[in-house]
């Protein structure tokens, strides 16, 4: 297990947002975190990243694992150009870093934009620059908070492919927060469903489909239907042949 979460809870003042969230993620797994807006997905990710330490419960990540984070917003440093932002997380020789950063900028389609400042970027460009900044550091564990939600359908697809390519190359462990059920199903080995007030882990679903998956396939369509039902609370329509209960894998 690369990452383990035990009885994770978080309260803000009076309001208990998360309670008793348990899950673990194996090395090289892609896991999506799904749930309605405001249910605490970002909160889970911030705790995993070590940005928030006021949680209850226990999170363990081996200390040799370098963690990368792609935030819900671009968070580029406004005083640096796109290229300088992309090299921000790299250490060592500047020339080499810039070469490497340029490769990743090209992969996210920002080759032409390296000299621009953040104020000169569109929302989607800024988000892609932020994605390049995180990917270039080649982290062992990559946490992504709705990374593609600001992008058009086509760019989104390209970047999903990029994510899979990086996963194949480096065996990155990926935890992805998303609103997009199609995205979760297309990318993930498992989908975790956060539900309730306070949120708990309602389902831990293993998406036992081989890769490469085809978008819009019947199998994914079936899954999507089932997950939508689950989100609505219509448990009974669920095809339990595909489901495993919390914490177990099929």
């Amino acid at each position: 297990m690369t990452l383990q979460v035990k009885a994770l809870g978080r309260r803000f003042g009076e309001k208990q947002v998360l309670q008793q969230v348990d899950f673990s993620v194996g090395k090289g797994e892609i896991v999506s975190l799904l749930g309605t807006s405001g249910c605490g997905k970002s909160t889970v990710l911030r705790a995993l990243a070590g940005l928030d330490s006021d949680y209850e419960g226990k999170i363990s990540i081996p200390s040799d694992q370098r963690v990368g984070f792609i935030f819900q917003e671009p968070r580029l440093l406004p005083w640096k150009t796109v290229l300088a932002n992309a090299t921000f997380g790299l250490k060592g020789d500047r020339k080499e870093n810039e070469e490497k950063a340029r490769r990743y900028l090209e992969l996210v389609g920002l080759k032409e934009a390296e000299k621009l400042y953040p104020r000169e970027l569109s929302g989607g460009m800024a988000q892609r620059a932020a994605i390049a900044r995180a990917l270039v550091t080649e982290p062992d564990i990559l946490l992504l908070d709705e990374p593609f939600s600001a992008l058009d359908a086509f760019t989104k697809m390209q970047l999903q492919e990029l994510l899979l390519k990086i996963w194949e190359t480096f065996g990155t462990t990926i935890i992805l927060v998303t609103h997009d059920i199609d995205e979760a199903l297309y990318l993930s080995d498992r989908v975790l469903l956060l539900q309730g007030r306070p949120s708990t882990l309602a389902k831990d679903l293993k998406i036992a489909l081989t890769r490469p998956r085809s978008r819009g396939s019947a199998a994914l369509g079936k899954w999507k239907e089932d997950i939508l039902d689950l989100l609505e609370g219509k448990e009974q329509t669920y095809d339990y042949s595909l489901v495993t209960e919390i914490g177990q894998k099929a």
């Binding site: 990243a49 070590g50 940005l51 963690v67 990368g68 984070f69 935030f71 917003e73 968070r75 440093l77 921000f88 997380g89």
Partner: peptide, 8 residues
Amino acid sequence: KLIEVGRM
């Protein structure tokens, strides 16, 4: 938010 980027 920028400080968090630095810490990350």
